[in-house]
Write a protein that binds this DNA or RNA. Structure first.
Length: 154
DNA sequence: GCCAACGTTGGC
DNA sequence: GCCAACGTTGGC
């Protein structure tokens, strides 16, 4: 099993949305590296840290799991979509999405600052300068540490 | 295939 | 809202 961090501004998709819907399609990814993670490296059951970016504070706020195979992100073909890509069409959908299932909301969100100040989490991609990937692989050890921090009672 | 210009991301 | 850092685009 692999571990991932999915980043989104909460005004687009938040842990509230994911909990409410139970299953959330993760659409709107328009970066080839992030797309290729979905296409080739993810499997059903992989665990996903849900991260709120551009937030107060930006933080890992919950846990989900991959619950579908990758499939076409048709919002790319919709001229009215915020995520429209004029190069995408049914013969060449270009972009991919995947479904995640809500598992848990963390009692203690793990903020960027907490990750940055934890000596054992210094390899996490999310704190790397200039890191903008919206889908990032996470090491198993880092995943366990983040979950342990997040599940502490406040 | 280089690389400058541009648009976007996202922390602050 | 600012702006550093990055990915993408397109002229050459």
């Amino acid at each position: 099993m692999r571990y991932w961090l999915f980043k989104k501004e909460p005004k687009n998709i938040s842990i509230d949305h994911i909990e409410e819907k139970g299953v959330q399609n993760w659409h709107g990814v328009r970066n080839y590296q992030a797309r290729n993670f979905m296409r080739t490296d993810m499997a059903i059951g992989d665990k996903v840290l849900v991260y709120h970016s551009n937030s107060e504070p930006s933080a890992v706020v919950g846990l989900a799991e991959i619950c579908s195979a990758p499939y076409d992100d048709v919002t790319a073909q919709d001229p009215d979509s915020y995520h429209h890509d004029p190069k995408a069409n049914p013969d060449n959908p270009i972009w991919t999405q995947i479904d995640i299932r809500f598992l848990e909301r963390f009692p203690t969100p793990v903020s960027l600052e907490m990750i940055r100040s934890d000596p054992s989490l210094q390899n996490m991609l999310v704190i790397k300068r200039g890191m903008r990937l919206s889908i990032q692989p996470v090491e198993a050890a880092d995943f366990e540490i983040v979950c342990a921090l997040a599940r502490r009672a406040v």
